[in-house]
């Protein structure tokens, strides 16, 4: 196998980023991003993503993308997740548990209604 260069890896990253970006007419209608920095993992983010995956399985929906990212810079409010729907601003949820995530999935991801009790803000942060 030919050795990958840094340029190849960056190109691949851009291709993947393009493929997982939500857009009108694209394959995905919703995206759930769970923050998996050291702080998030220690606070219970793995249980949160498992709750999302169980709900995806139950819903049998093919158009929901689940992904992970790093620390959002607000370690004291982890576990955190961001929910995005096509054409809507992303919503950041904080202090999550598996139960809260299951409710967010049903109400927001499937129902389109933000769960304001668990939400921090609209918008995204830079995670690199």
């Amino acid at each position: 196998m030919a050795k990958l260069t840094l340029k190849d890896l960056q190109k691949k990253r851009e291709e993947v980023k393009k493929a997982i970006t939500l857009r009108e007419g694209g394959p995905y209608k919703a995206k759930v991003t769970v923050h998996m920095g050291t702080c998030g993992i220690a606070a219970g983010a793995r249980k949160v993503i498992d709750a999302v995956l169980k709900e995806v399985e139950k819903s049998d929906r093919q158009d929901i993308l689940v992904t992970t990212t790093g620390c959002a810079g607000l370690c004291s409010r982890e576990p955190m997740a961001t929910v995005e729907l096509v054409g809507k601003p992303p919503v950041k949820y904080i202090d999550l548990t598996a139960e809260k995530m299951a409710k967010i999935f049903k109400d927001h991801v499937l129902g389109g209604k933000t769960v304001t009790d668990y939400a921090l803000a609209y918008g995204s942060e830079k995670t690199s």
Binding site: V34, L53, T68
Partner: peptide, 8 residues
Amino acid sequence: ILTLVMGN
């Protein structure tokens, strides 16, 4: 493993 694979 499930988390790593499904998230990526």
